[in-house]
Amino acid sequence: MQYRFDRFVLDLTHLRLTADGQAVDADARQLQLLGLLIAAYPECLSRQSLLDQLWPETVVSQWSLGRLVSDTRKLFRELAFCGELIETQHGRGYRLAPEVAKQLHRVAASAETGAEGETAPVAQARSAEAAAAPAPDVGVPSSQIAAAGVREGNFWRLFSAVAVVVVATALVVYLITARRIPDDGAPLVIGEAPGVRGRILWVDDNPDNNLSERRHFESRDIAIYLATNTEDAMTLLSMYRYDAVISDMGRGEEPLAGFKLMERIRGKRDDTPYFLYTIMPSKAQRQLVEQRGGNGVAVTPEELYGMVLPLFDERSASAASKP
């Protein structure tokens, strides 16, 4: 079974991806993830459902799924795909982005020649063929995946090694440069659009998970700055002024990273409004955040907007009232 969208053809039978007819080095599980989301659209798939199907009979954490989603988004960004690929439904799971679903067509291919036949929207293909044949399994035996990888393995291993060296070098240069910036409290204006109402520091090791939320704030003239770990967040807070901090709860192997960041900020007598954006917080967690100086815990985008946007509305009203 093959699907076409934008410049891409996704072959779920053989777990292959091409862009403009050229093979793409993609992890088989990334393509399985897309296949599951396509099959479920317009429904959202829960994290547990995806874990069970992508890692059958294997115990893995939800961070593995978050990393897989992030890596899949990154793969398509590097292939110059513009727009959202996978939607994060906070508190529920993940869904194929509607803009991708609108472009998605099923491709009929000849088994002998591989020639493409007529295409039809996913919704039409699903309704037309569901009665005639069961949906094919997106899984492929590991031996078949390994055999396909051998053909291009040498080239892509070399390509990957070079890419790692380039990225590592760029990261070192960035870290060295960032720490040479004087701690003079100067406003952060690099790349910032004119006329912003304020700034938010967003701390999350998977920033793509919050793409739609960040766009919502930016559409209201609020600048967003990102940090993926506690140390970078503390460095930025020591150099620049922000109107709010939004953080996830767990990062990497630290399930309480967001809570510990809040304690470090308050320990420096920094009273910047601090909000946790997380999944299914317990009542005890909410109470502890309030007791230790946090300003709120949000689960849904609407809850987050309701907590954070009034800060900027108050600032705008105050500025307007000044002579």
Rank of each mutant, 00 (worst) to 15 (best):
Ala130Tyr: 09
Asn229Ser: 02
Trp202Ile: 05
Ala26Glu: 04
Val100Ala: 04
Ala132Tyr: 13
Lys102Arg: 14
Ser61Tyr: 11
Pro134Leu: 09
Asp243Tyr: 06
Ser238Arg: 15
Val138His: 02
Arg92Leu: 14
Thr113Met: 02
Val69Met: 03
Thr113Val: 04
Val60Leu: 08
Asp208His: 05
Pro98Val: 03
Pro98Gln: 04
Leu276Pro: 01
Ser318Gln: 12
Val24Ala: 08
Ala147Glu: 14
Ala131Leu: 09
Ala108Val: 07
Ala148Glu: 06
Glu57Ser: 11
Phe8Thr: 05
Asp232Gln: 13
Thr119Arg: 14
Gly139Thr: 15
Gly114Ile: 02
Tyr174Leu: 07
Ser247Tyr: 06
Lys322Thr: 12
Ala186Cys: 03
Asn154Ile: 11
Pro121Asp: 08
His216Trp: 15
Ala320Tyr: 01
Ile246Phe: 03
Arg220His: 13
Arg286Lys: 13
Leu236His: 07
Glu99Pro: 00
Gln291Asp: 04
Thr119His: 02
Arg77Cys: 00
Val165Asp: 06
Tyr174Trp: 02
Ala40Lys: 12
His90Gln: 08
Asp137Leu: 08
Gly153Asn: 07
Tyr94His: 08
His105Met: 06
Leu68Arg: 02
Asp208Gln: 11
Asp20Leu: 07
Ala178Phe: 10
Lys283Val: 08
Gln103Trp: 05
Gly91Glu: 08
Ile265Cys: 10
Ala317Pro: 00
Ser46Leu: 10
Asn206Lys: 07
Gln32Ile: 10
Ala40Val: 08
Arg7Phe: 08
Ala23Leu: 08
Leu236Arg: 15
Lys74Asp: 09
Thr272Cys: 13
Thr18Met: 02
Leu201Gln: 01
Arg73Asn: 06
Thr119Ser: 12
Leu237Glu: 03
Ala40Pro: 02
Leu304Tyr: 02
Ser212Ala: 14
Leu237His: 04
Leu171Ser: 12
Ala186Gln: 13
Phe159Asn: 09
Thr230Gln: 07
Gln103Thr: 07
Ile200Tyr: 04
Ala227His: 03
Ala101Glu: 09
Gly149Asp: 13
Tyr3Lys: 00
Thr169Arg: 12
Val189Cys: 04
Gly114Pro: 04
Glu57Asn: 11
Leu33Ser: 07
Asp243Gly: 15
Val167Asn: 10
Ala123Tyr: 02
Phe76Ala: 06
Ala101Val: 08
Val189Thr: 15
Arg315Met: 13
Phe5Tyr: 03
Trp156Cys: 02
Ala97Ser: 13
Leu256Gln: 08
Gly267Arg: 13
Val173Trp: 10
Val297Glu: 07
Thr235Pro: 00
Asp248Pro: 01
Arg292Gln: 04
Glu302Asp: 14
Phe259Leu: 12
Arg77Phe: 00
Gly93Gln: 03
Gly93Val: 03
Glu84Asp: 14
Asp52Met: 05
Asp248Gly: 15
Met239Phe: 11
Arg77Ser: 06
Leu37Ser: 07
Arg151Val: 12
Gln144Phe: 03
Ala101Trp: 01
Leu226Met: 10
Val164Glu: 14
Ala170His: 02
Leu236Trp: 12
Thr177Leu: 07
Phe76Gln: 07
Pro281Arg: 09
Leu34Lys: 03
Ile145Lys: 06
Leu188Arg: 14
Phe217Ala: 10
Leu45Asn: 04
Leu226His: 08
Phe155Asp: 07
Met307Ser: 08
Phe81Gly: 01
Leu236Asp: 13
Leu75Ile: 09
Gly91Val: 09
Leu15Asn: 11
